[in-house]
């Protein structure tokens, strides 16, 4: 049955319209969870607010389990969903640069759009920075093209790497995530701050 657009149950234009609706859902969920607050996002790295960690990983494990169940019931054909290709060096290098951007800027692209929508000026500045960063990347592309395409590994799944089933890997990730939540809740008490209240407006 799914993915709908691949099986031509819906047209390309309907797909774009649904993208808009999905975006509304995404934006709403981000905002309602406080992802529009850079101090909350940064709080994850100092332990005083680990909401982002909880939401992010709960989202990932729910989606991972959900997709496998949907495949089990034949509601979605997992061979037709997009799997991000792995280019080892650029994945890691890009991730390191993004990590630096995260701690300095306090947002990531999705959350900055969300925060800009409720009027956060620092988020708008961050978005401007993203535009500049992408522009630099495009203009200087020949310089890092080699690095960008180095060590291509195809689109392996974690389960391929460990030679086990997707279900088992998902189960292990669930356990790891729950362990992190436990640490996160401990950290929120341990690193609590006087000038910062959890779930602040």
């Amino acid at each position: 049955m799914g993915p709908l657009v691949v099986n031509e149950i819906i047209t390309e234009n309907a797909n774009l319209f649904l993208a808009f609706l999905i975006g509304i859902g995404f934006g709403f969920v981000l905002e309602v969870n406080g992802f529009s607050s850079s101090r909350r996002l940064a709080g994850m790295f100092y332990g005083y607010d680990t909401t982002v960690l909880k939401v992010f990983f709960t989202g990932a494990i729910v989606a991972a389990v959900g997709l496998l169940f949907m495949s089990l019931f034949n509601w979605i054909d997992l061979s037709y969903i997009y799997i991000n290709p792995t280019y080892l060096w650029s994945s890691l290098g890009g991730g390191v640069i993004m990590g630096a951007g995260f701690i300095l800027g306090g947002y990531c692209p999705g959350t900055s759009v969300c925060a800009a929508s409720i009027g956060k000026l620092d988020a708008m500045a961050f978005l401007g920075g993203i535009v500049i960063g992408i522009f630099i990347f495009i203009e200087g592309f020949p310089m890092w093209e080699g690095f960008y395409n180095a060590k291509f590994l195809g689109s392996p799944l974690l389960s391929d790497i460990f030679g086990t089933s997707r279900g088992l890997i998902t189960f292990l990730i669930i356990l790891v995530a729950l362990g992190m939540f436990w640490v996160g809740e401990w950290a929120e008490k341990h690193f609590a701050r006087d000038d910062y209240k959890l779930n602040q407006k």
């Binding site: 049955m1 099986n7 494990i61 729910v62 389990v65 496998l68 169940f69 495949s71 089990l72 034949n74 054909d77 997992l78 061979s79 089933s165 997707r166 279900g167 088992l168 998902t170 189960f171 669930i174 356990l175 729950l178």
Partner: peptide
């Protein structure tokens, strides 16, 4: 989520292709 994860880890993967 832990029971769900255990179920999904225990059942064989669905590899049938719904080709159409």
């Amino acid at each position: 989520i832990i029971p769900l994860g255990m179920i999904i880890a225990a059942v064989p993967e669905n590899t049938t292709k719904q080709f159409r």
